[in-house]
Design a protein around this nucleic acid. Structure first.
Length: 305
DNA sequence: ATCCAGGAACTGT
DNA sequence: ACAGTTCATGGA
């Protein structure tokens, strides 16, 4: 992490290919989002400190990310931890030079990387949150997915109120490991999804599953194999989590209907491409499938492309 | 009403 | 290993 601690606030110096406006667009994509809010070109969210939650205001000026703490300044250890979280959240460690080199020679990606230059994968650093969001999103429309997420967070998450605004933190696996399937069904989760989510919370609570455990693995396939062995996690969810949480650049949720839609639109196809057709296109994306996917998703909420 | 949505497990071959 | 079926629930 490249940062400067100013004690009452911190600054994060992102790599050169970074577009903060794209972060604002991505994070503002649903008005049902509950884990962060946008105000005056800044992002407000709460991040867990040693004991309490710390309200963070993230803004961008003169090529630097500025993180302020409207609700009180955290300790130096917490400030560094918050910096690391944001560094990871916006995938600032990644050097995009090779991706852009590949993209410049690719008919699909060239347009996207020109248009969204500096867009980075906005991740989900918390493993449990990544699992839950992926499972919620299985086979339902995104609008309903956000509704379910909002209910879940409001029911089991922690809340912080500051100056008449309410900020929510995602529920912990410790908490969800103690609830029952019927409770989630009451929030209109399907029986299956309720079982999957509580099952994963229990695995994590027992220490049988953690981000550290997964990150220790040597390669993409090892991680994917161990993810798929978990009930409720198929190929799509495994790749989604590897892309959004585990920073695997080769992660590629190829069955994703969003990818299919984006390609159909970009290539002006009559119908959505088959998996085989996508595999053919994606040969050139090798090593950067996760970024290709994220840029394709980005094009879905762009009317002008 | 009908199709579909950022799928996965289950069943049968 | 592969294909077809079932589950599940709201959005458009």
């Amino acid at each position: 992490m490249n940062w400067v601690d100013h004690e009452t606030y911190i600054e994060i110096i992102p790599p050169k290919e970074f577009n903060f406006n794209e972060c604002l667009i991505f994070l503002g994509r649903s008005d049902q989002e509950i884990l962060y809010r946008m105000k005056e070109d800044a992002i407000y969210t709460i991040i867990k400190g040693r004991e309490s939650f710390i309200l963070c205001r993230i803004s961008y000026d003169k090529d630097v990310l500025k993180i302020e703490f409207p609700n009180g300044v955290p300790t130096v250890v917490e400030r560094e931890k918050i910096g690391e979280y944001i560094w990871e959240w916006f995938d600032l460690e990644r050097d995009l030079a090779e991706f852009y080199r590949i993209a410049s020679k690719d008919t699909v990606l060239r347009k996207l990387t020109e248009r969204y230059h500096g867009l980075r994968i906005i991740g989900i650093p918390d493993l449990f949150e990544a699992f839950v969001w992926a499972i919620i999103g299985q086979q339902i429309n995104l609008t309903f997915a956000y509704t379910l997420k909002k209910r879940f967070v409001e029911q089991y998450g922690e809340v912080l109120t500051f100056e008449d605004e309410t900020y929510w933190a995602f529920p912990t696996f410790e908490k969800i490991a103690t609830i029952h399937v019927e409770e989630l069904k009451a929030l209109q989760f399907s029986t299956r999804k309720a079982e999957y989510i509580i099952g994963i919370a229990k695995l994590m609570n027992n220490g049988d599953l953690s981000k550290e455990f997964l990150m220790e693995k040597q390669n993409y396939q090892d991680i994917k194999d161990s993810l798929i062995s978990i009930r409720g996690i198929g190929a799509w969810t495994a790749d989604y989590v590897m892309m959004k949480c585990l920073h695997q650049p080769s992660a590629f949720p190829i069955a994703d209907v969003g990818i299919h839609q984006a390609l159909k639109h970009l290539l002006k196809l009559e119908k959505k491409p088959s998996i085989e057709e996508i595999e053919k296109l994606a040969v050139q994306w090798k090593g950067w499938q996760a970024y290709a996917t994220f840029y394709l998703w980005r094009s879905l909420y762009d009317e002008t492309i």
